[in-house]
Design a protein around this nucleic acid. Structure first.
Lengths: 222, 222
DNA sequence: ATACAGGATCCTGTATACAGAAAGTACTAA
DNA sequence: TTAGTACTTTCTGTATACAGGATCCTGTAT
């Protein structure tokens, strides 16, 4: 007898509100500090406050929204110190991840990563910086999704989501770095392709160190 | 002119529900797999479903509760694989934390840690294993609270909360290890007391490696 | 007995109502 | 003009109602 896992039930309004709000915040449609009054946001989404409140609670846990009892929720604002903190943790977790998955990544997964690399290349050629950042972030998140350690996946995803949302805002001079960042992804893929844990970890470590180095000058300007 | 930060407003019913449920789950009053129907849990707490739902959403993010659309929430069940995953991350994050805080920990903070150590000692003498685990977990969480990296604090707290809740259940033979675990805390404090980052990180690394080693035999029995 | 169908029951997801806190506004006094 | 105060509006926190899905129970057919 064939056993299939039942398909997940229809997405709830709350889930959709969560996805849509998350997207809007990441893409900068709501800016850091913007207030998010429940009634009006719910009206925008065409739902009531109840499902929205759950979505807001989740976004607060993701670090995208700040909640204070009795006050309006607002889009989180990050300082450069926060970004540095995120990078410290990425520096710790992402090379570890790259090293681990090198031993069990599949060819299909490698192909999907190559596709993302391709998207990045095109984004650079078309000077579409939003697309670049989006696919860059996606590259790191997708690498994490391969790991069997679910908590690690969660952590890396959270760090990247928080980080890239702000990277977009901070780095006006991003364009010149995009090509470099892109080129650093190649040795990571290469090491994974050859199932070399050490090299994959090392390549990721170098990449994130460089992200940090590239962010520093921007921080100086402030 | 003297400026004081305004005191936080009264805790909401939702916050209290969150704290109370978290406590009940960690202390084993609800067991892994137990269903948590909103209506009855709300009735137990003497509140309505609305504030409870927010508490449940938060506990789900903490990993203490599992939510599936349309189904009853239930207390999360962890496998030994999950525990191993938590330990891998603690292995990465906690030595890093110990190393960082060594350079700026205050004497007051060290004193508070010493007090926790004292509680642990007493718990062992009185064979109060629940108290021991509680204060052991608290020791690690309190070390994280000192770090200025807020995300790191969050991650370590989450890992410890999830870990210790299950440790209690898994380790019937805990008593013989409690004294050893306790003794491993001493060099950590000692290194912090002398503001030696390297040694603090190393002591924490050894400690967590040993936790892992002690858990392995238990895993074999299963 | 075992498997299945139908119905009753329980429970979640959602909308809505309302009290009291927060925020905004306009008016008064210096 | 500025500071302060009373009033109004807005908004959150909470309770509650209800529809439809999930679950459980019962009885029937194999």
């Amino acid at each position: 007898m064939v056993v299939l896992t039942k398909l997940q039930q229809t997405e709830t309004l709350s889930d959709r509100a969560y996805r849509e709000l998350k997207r809007a915040i990441i893409q900068g449609e709501f800016l850091p500090g913007d207030p998010l009054p429940e009634e009006s946001v719910a009206a925008m989404l065409g739902i009531s406050r109840t499902p929205l409140r759950k979505a807001i609670t989740r976004l607060a846990y993701d670090g995208l929204i700040v909640l204070e009892t009795g006050k309006k929720a607002r889009v989180a604002e990050y300082s450069l110190v926060d970004l540095d903190h995120f990078l410290q943790l990425r520096q710790l977790l992402e090379p570890f991840n790259a090293q681990q998955i090198a031993s069990y990544i599949t060819d299909e997964q490698l192909d999907e990563l190559e596709q993302l690399i391709q998207v990045q290349k095109e984004a650079i050629e078309q000077h579409d910086m939003y697309q670049f950042i989006e696919s860059d972030s996606q590259f790191h998140i997708q690498l994490a999704e391969i790991n069997r350690n679910h908590k690690l996946r969660e952590f890396i995803e959270q760090l990247n989501t928080n980080f890239y949302r702000n990277y977009l805002i901070l780095s006006g001079t991003l364009e010149e770095y995009a090509a470099i960042a892109f080129s650093e992804h190649l040795p990571i893929i290469e090491a994974l392709r050859h199932r070399q844990p050490e090299q994959a970890g090392e390549a990721m470590k170098i990449h994130i160190q460089n992200i940090e180095a590239r962010l520093k000058p921007v921080a100086q300007e402030e």
